[in-house]
Design a protein around this nucleic acid. Structure first.
Lengths: 147, 147
DNA sequence: ATTACTGCAAAGGATTTGCATGTGA
DNA sequence: TCACATGCAAATCCTTTGCAGTAAT
């Protein structure tokens, strides 16, 4: 029942070591690469950033590190528009995904509490509304289509 | 400006022919296979059902038919839990996806109008809330975890 | 008679895995 | 020291594509 917010941006080396795993230069670079991106970052972006600093790092290592971080809860992985996007675990927020230009906007305020309560009461379903991907049209594309 | 509801369960052969495409036994079997499943059906399920009736039908044909039906608006394709699920286009509804047992429940009633209005007003984002995949825990898994 | 559609096989791309080597604790 | 992690290469999985033959209209 602890009201623990420490999973947001915690001292990650300790968290890794505490579970008996190891902090390696590769993992640090990969985590850095995710931090550099604002919000969601694709595998290719991460890999490119890592390679710019350490060309010897292998794709397989990046795949394994991403899985590793996800299992530890350090990052989130979300399916957005067919591709997997990774981001540092932080405050719950949602994504407005434009189906036209593909842009992804973060939505930090939200009005989901009523919805969540409704789903639990009437359907017995405990919704985890942390990282919802909401499809639609962004303001720019909306105007472009209407005109 | 037509108030046309005919895209739900319309006479599909006519719809296909009207656009200059052809109604083939393969396409009929594949569409049948999607109808047989309640809601979302994976590629493998569809392929297995088709093969049971006509073993000669090729995977490539199934892939092409699914794309074809999707472009015609006869079916929907949704990313659910890493896999693509297909279903007959019908009334807009949502999916409650249990992250524990993987079960997908349909949600036909919904309270998304306020949310939609809010997103448009404050973010200029026209949300298309037709087939939202809402992650969480179903009632069964919820009880199992709590106990 | 057209020309869309199918089956086959091969190509393609993304991710995973086995194994020997290297390295953090 | 010793188990975890890495790099490499091969394997695997899923999906797409080119092409020659088939069939719907």
């Amino acid at each position: 029942m602890e009201q623990d917010m420490s999973h947001y941006r915690m001292n990650y080396p300790d968290r890794i070591r505490k579970r008996g795993f190891r902090v390696t230069p590769q993992r640090q670079l990969i985590l850095d690469a995710i931090c550099e991106g604002e919000g969601h970052t694709t595998f290719d972006e991460i890999y490119a950033r890592v390679q710019a600093k350490a060309p010897a790092i292998n794709r397989a290592t990046v795949y394994r590190a991403l899985d590793f971080f996800r299992e530890l809860g350090l990052i989130f992985a979300a399916e957005i528009g067919g591709h997997t996007g990774y981001e540092i675990a932080s405050k719950p927020h949602h994504h407005l995904v434009c189906r036209c230009c593909g842009k992804v906007e973060d939505l930090t305020d939200y009005h989901f509490h009523d919805l969540s309560a409704h789903l639990l009461e009437e359907h017995g379903f405990k919704a985890e509304l942390d990282h919802l991907a909401i499809p639609g049209l962004c303001s720019k594309c909306l105007k472009a289509i209407e005109s």
